[in-house]
Amino acid sequence: MTEYKLVVVGAGGVGKSALTIQLIQNHFVDEYDPTIEDSYRKQVVIDGETCLLDILDTAGQEEYSAMRDQYMRTGEGFLCVFAINNTKSFEDIHHYREQIKRVKDSEDVPMVLVGNKCDLPSRTVDTKQAQDLARSYGIPFIETSAKTRQGVDDAFYTLVREIRKHKEKMSKDGKKKKKKSKTKCVIM
């Protein structure tokens, strides 16, 4: 069974824990209790493949930012979460993405942009803004509501699919490099 290491990042209060708990335990946590770091595991079937999701729910508070490099190193894919009623959390996505790329030393890291709290009427981040940002990053965008469960499975499952595509691409690139290195030079 394939294991996928997913990391949920975003500013404090955007609903990272609520999304994760909704996926794992099928219930909505409405009281806000700032996370330092929590880890969850769940076995699911995605596109006919049974897999184990190892999900790291991270601290959004700035005082825990020193811990970010460590979990970013171990993560295979990242859910970059903002709240649709919090423009600052949307603007912060850029910083999370840049930090992930720096730590992973790669421009090509599996990510999904997630606009959470889409059940709320007080939207300050337009869907088109988020779609445009995701398009500019070359990553999928999904709106979710941890409260109603809308888009929750889709967000995590899409990230797994992005990781699969990335692994497939990397193995193809690896095979191309191996083929090239088999060419021999004969000096007579």
Score class of each variant (00 low, 15 high):
106 S>C: 12
71 Y>P: 15
128 K>C: 06
106 S>R: 13
82 F>C: 13
185 C>T: 15
102 R>I: 04
77 G>W: 08
18 A>S: 07
184 K>E: 06
158 T>G: 07
175 K>R: 12
172 K>V: 11
133 L>V: 11
37 E>Q: 15
19 L>K: 11
44 V>P: 04
22 Q>T: 14
86 N>G: 11
55 I>A: 04
145 S>V: 02
130 A>L: 09
8 V>A: 08
77 G>D: 05
137 Y>K: 11
122 S>M: 14
50 T>A: 11
20 T>A: 04
55 I>V: 06
164 R>V: 05
100 I>T: 04
2 T>I: 11
113 L>D: 12
81 V>R: 01
78 F>H: 05
87 T>R: 04
72 M>Y: 02
141 F>S: 06
83 A>L: 03
180 K>N: 03
37 E>A: 15
123 R>Q: 12
157 Y>V: 09
33 D>L: 00
5 K>E: 13
82 F>D: 06
160 V>I: 06
156 F>R: 00
80 C>L: 10
49 E>K: 10
20 T>Y: 00
5 K>Q: 13
100 I>H: 12
160 V>G: 04
86 N>Y: 02
139 I>N: 05
10 G>S: 06
67 M>C: 04
50 T>V: 12
133 L>T: 14
115 G>A: 13
116 N>F: 01
81 V>K: 01
121 P>D: 12
93 I>G: 05
178 K>S: 07
188 M>E: 15
31 E>Q: 03
115 G>I: 13
172 K>M: 13
17 S>H: 00
24 I>W: 13
72 M>D: 03
137 Y>V: 13
76 E>Q: 08
163 I>M: 11
26 N>R: 11
79 L>E: 01
183 T>M: 09
96 Y>A: 03
5 K>C: 08
154 D>P: 09
155 A>S: 12
48 G>V: 10
175 K>E: 14
32 Y>G: 00
154 D>G: 07
69 D>Q: 09
66 A>L: 09
130 A>M: 12
31 E>N: 02
19 L>V: 12
150 Q>R: 06
160 V>H: 04
125 V>Q: 10
66 A>I: 05
118 C>F: 09
142 I>R: 10
78 F>V: 02
155 A>K: 02
153 D>R: 05
114 V>K: 02
75 G>R: 03
81 V>W: 05
137 Y>N: 15
125 V>P: 09
99 Q>S: 13
114 V>I: 09
70 Q>R: 15
97 R>W: 14
115 G>L: 11
116 N>E: 10
164 R>S: 07
140 P>L: 03
166 H>G: 10
154 D>V: 06
21 I>R: 01
52 L>V: 14
66 A>N: 14
78 F>P: 02
173 D>Y: 14
49 E>T: 11
17 S>D: 00
106 S>E: 13
39 S>L: 02
88 K>C: 12
174 G>S: 09
141 F>D: 03
8 V>R: 01
63 E>T: 03
102 R>N: 11
54 D>M: 14
33 D>H: 01
124 T>S: 09
65 S>K: 10
52 L>D: 13
56 L>W: 03
73 R>T: 12
123 R>E: 13
56 L>T: 15
38 D>E: 00
155 A>D: 02
112 V>F: 05
47 D>H: 11
159 L>N: 04
126 D>I: 05
163 I>F: 11
133 L>H: 15
48 G>A: 10
166 H>L: 08
38 D>R: 00
159 L>H: 02
15 G>H: 02
122 S>V: 06
50 T>L: 12
89 S>R: 05
19 L>C: 13
17 S>K: 00
4 Y>M: 15
163 I>W: 04
62 E>R: 03
84 I>S: 13
31 E>M: 03
12 G>Q: 14
74 T>I: 05
75 G>S: 03
151 G>R: 10
20 T>E: 01
49 E>H: 15
146 A>G: 06
49 E>W: 08
117 K>F: 15
36 I>K: 00
181 S>L: 09
184 K>R: 03
135 R>E: 14
40 Y>T: 00
123 R>L: 09
165 K>G: 10
116 N>M: 14
121 P>V: 10
82 F>V: 15
7 V>A: 13
6 L>M: 06
46 I>F: 11
172 K>S: 11
75 G>K: 02
37 E>S: 15
88 K>T: 11
121 P>E: 13
107 E>S: 08
67 M>L: 13
19 L>H: 06
8 V>W: 00
35 T>D: 00
109 V>R: 04
177 K>D: 03
65 S>Y: 09
92 D>G: 04
88 K>W: 07
95 H>V: 11
14 V>H: 14
42 K>Q: 08
153 D>S: 07
72 M>Q: 07
42 K>S: 07
3 E>I: 08
69 D>N: 13
14 V>F: 14
5 K>Y: 02
109 V>P: 04
65 S>N: 03
35 T>F: 00
44 V>H: 07
63 E>R: 02
53 L>S: 14
69 D>W: 08
124 T>L: 08
178 K>F: 09
9 V>R: 08
21 I>D: 01
175 K>A: 02
19 L>S: 14
174 G>Y: 06
17 S>N: 00
105 D>K: 02
186 V>Q: 15
177 K>P: 15
17 S>V: 01
162 E>Q: 07
18 A>P: 01
42 K>M: 08
19 L>W: 03
173 D>T: 08
133 L>M: 08
175 K>L: 13
167 K>H: 07
153 D>L: 07
128 K>F: 06
12 G>N: 11
98 E>R: 12
111 M>A: 04
86 N>D: 13
108 D>S: 07
90 F>W: 11
16 K>E: 03
15 G>C: 02
62 E>D: 09
53 L>F: 10
186 V>I: 15
26 N>H: 14
31 E>F: 14
156 F>Y: 13
46 I>P: 13
95 H>D: 15
79 L>K: 02
117 K>A: 14
104 K>A: 13
121 P>S: 08
111 M>L: 08
116 N>P: 04
59 A>C: 01
178 K>T: 11
177 K>A: 09
43 Q>E: 13
11 A>H: 10
95 H>Q: 12
36 I>N: 00
6 L>R: 01
178 K>D: 06
122 S>R: 05
96 Y>M: 13
33 D>C: 00
104 K>E: 08
129 Q>K: 13
126 D>Y: 07
39 S>I: 02
161 R>E: 03
101 K>A: 14
66 A>C: 15
158 T>N: 06
159 L>Q: 03
123 R>K: 11
66 A>K: 07
64 Y>M: 01
20 T>S: 05
62 E>I: 03
63 E>M: 03
112 V>C: 09
12 G>M: 14
76 E>A: 07
36 I>F: 01
32 Y>L: 01
124 T>Q: 10
117 K>C: 13
50 T>F: 08
97 R>T: 13
20 T>V: 09
113 L>Q: 01
104 K>V: 11
60 G>L: 00
27 H>L: 15
88 K>L: 10
33 D>S: 00
162 E>F: 03
40 Y>A: 00
64 Y>I: 01
126 D>A: 06
